[in-house]
């Protein structure tokens, strides 16, 4: 399994957000987590990325319990996140957004990092945008840059928070294809969304978050 979540619970100031949530995602699997607004889907994703501390339970990725890991340099290489509003660095060009973290972490040579960036730029069809700044890009292009940036560290698991909320139907389809391509390369994908159409189109497994718990709703062999 790429990610194994066991009995995690989270509350804020005594208010229970979710309790004893467990699930697992294998390599190349696309799992959609759906649910109404305020059910705690985004909080769950933030917990997976260690942006919030869980109250109890375990989050195992590649055999490491990342809920106990405090070194973000280690976590960053295991799990990636594409935020709802992308969180691109506005003062850096597209290429600089892609290169900054891997060059800082120095897990491979500069040449390898640059060729990985160029490969992702081709895969995600954002050629010609390398020297542009985020404000010069459309919503769909920003989404692709955010995906490319998260993929630069080659994480085992990639999380998406409401990836289609700012996109039109055509761009949503394109992003869906990109996500399927990443999954076909072995990346485990976890998507939080309330876009039923997108869930229908892309979700191999669908988990429903309701009343602070998570239930498996659909398993597809697509």
């Amino acid at each position: 399994m790429s990610v194994y979540v066991e009995n995690i619970s989270k509350s804020f100031d005594g208010i229970k957000i979710f309790e004893n949530v467990s699930f697992e995602v294998g390599p190349g699997e696309i799992v959609c987590i759906k649910g109404k607004s305020g059910e705690g889907k985004t909080t769950l994703l933030r917990c997976l990325n260690n942006l919030e501390q869980i109250d109890s339970g375990k989050i195992i990725i590649d055999g490491v319990d990342i809920s106990k890991e405090r070194d973000y340099r280690i976590i960053g290489g295991m799990i990636g996140m594409v935020f709802q509003n992308f969180n691109l660095f506005p003062h850096l060009s597209v290429m600089e957004n892609l290169l900054l973290a891997p060059k800082y972490l120095k897990k491979s040579s500069d040449d390898d990092i640059e060729s990985r960036a160029n490969e992702l730029i081709r895969t995600l069809e954002i050629e010609g945008k390398e020297n542009m700044y985020p404000f010069q890009l459309s919503g769909g292009q920003k989404q692709r840059v955010a995906i490319a940036r998260a993929c630069m560290l080659n994480p085992t698991v990639l999380c998406f928070d409401e990836p289609t909320s700012a996109l039109d139907n055509e761009t949503t389809k394109q992003i869906g294809k990109v996500i399927k391509r990443l999954a076909s390369e072995g990346m485990a994908i976890i998507i939080v969304t309330h876009d039923e159409g997108f869930v229908e189109e892309i979700g191999e497994r669908v988990l429903n978050m309701k009343n602070a718990s998570l239930k498996e709703e659909k398993i597809s062999l697509v």
Binding site: I79, F83, L100, A101
Partner: peptide, 12 residues
């Protein structure tokens, strides 16, 4: 979001 974007990318 700028801090969080950097954090999930492993930056100190």
């Amino acid at each position: 979001g700028q801090y969080e974007g950097a954090t999930v990318l492993g930056m100190s």
